[in-house]
């Protein structure tokens, strides 16, 4: 393998890892705090991408206005899921999982009917290609990677230093004790879905600019997210960041050197290994 090829693999992996991380953060946040595996998250990504597409590409609204609107739509859809899917099931992990899969398929089928068969694309914000050593990367990807880093840091700061962030961590670590501190758990759950939905919306817009928009676009990133969240330890933000980068890199290596089919198999093999050695994932803890 030449140095250029290695560099290319590294750059590709870093960018994809950061994108997967962004989607996975929304999943791990909800799991950590509510012990709910949110299967609908991928559909939030997809619906937000369509929202941004229609608002900006079709109706000519400025992207920077379209994005927050899409974040609102996504956050609102998240709240609907929380109120009408997960709360009635009392956040039971298995029931939520099953109903989530059902809802996800329903949303996807409905989207095919609604949006039609042709995939769309959100125009790139930063066109052009960058050369690093002998390797190439589009400016849009560099921009995307930067946004992912900024959002991960913002999420960390939010959880660490703001009042709602602290309430989230308290509920995550001991819901009953949080109740005794006067924290309104239902409100915290709503905040969690809002934050997670907003992250999904940004993820959808970024994915839509790089890879086009169609009703299936959330499926693969969501599957990757589950692998990442498992490897990192369900609910661990740090674990999700590290596992996201790790899976992005490992995918880039296997897909480039061995071919695309193998990436998922290798992902699952890594997951199996890690779960055997550390059943709670790299940074998981007892719940």
């Amino acid at each position: 393998m030449t140095a250029t090829l290695a560099l290319q693999i590294g750059i590709t992996g870093l960018v994809m890892g950061l994108i997967y991380m962004l989607i996975a953060l929304g999943v791990t946040l909800i799991f950590g705090i509510m012990r709910v595996v949110n299967f609908v998250h991928g559909e939030l990504v997809m619906l937000s991408a369509f929202a941004v597409y229609y608002l900006s590409a079709e109706w000519g609204i400025n992207f920077w206005l379209a994005l927050p609107l899409a974040m609102l739509v996504s956050a609102f859809t998240g709240i609907l899921c929380q109120k009408f899917l997960f709360r009635p099931l009392r956040y039971d992990i298995l029931n939520c999982f099953i109903i989530g899969i059902g809802a996800s398929f329903a949303i996807r089928s409905g989207s095919w009917a609604l949006f039609g068969p042709e995939p769309r694309a959100i125009p790139a914000l930063v066109p052009g290609v960058m050369r690093i050593g002998g390797a190439f990367v589009s400016q849009q990807r560099v921009f995307t990677a930067a946004v992912c880093v900024v959002l991960a840091v913002a999420l960390f700061l939010f959880l660490q230093y703001t009042r709602p962030g602290k309430a989230m961590r308290a509920v995550e670590q001991d819901p009953e004790a949080a109740l005794l501190m006067g924290i309104n758990i239902e409100n915290v759950y709503v905040t969690v879905f809002v934050v997670s939905g907003a992250l999904a919306a940004v993820g959808g817009a970024l994915l839509g600019m790089l890879f086009g928009v169609d009703p299936e676009m959330g499926a693969e990133p969501l599957l990757k997210s589950f692998i990442i969240v498992q490897i990192g330890g369900m609910g661990s933000i740090l674990g999700t960041v590290i596992a996201g980068l790790f899976i992005g890199m490992s995918d880039s290596i296997t897909e480039t050197t061995l071919g695309g089919e193998l990436a998922f198999i290798i992902d699952f093999a890594i997951l199996m290994l890690i779960l055997i050695v550390r059943p709670k994932g790299l940074f998981g803890y007892d719940v």
């Binding site: 602290k166 001991d174 949080a178 501190m181 006067g182």
Partner: peptide
């Protein structure tokens, strides 16, 4: 029933939530 992964200071602050 402390919040084990929060600091001592954070636990005090959340007591005054």
């Amino acid at each position: 029933r402390l919040f084990p992964r929060m600091t001592v200071r954070e636990n005090l602050e959340i007591g005054a939530f």
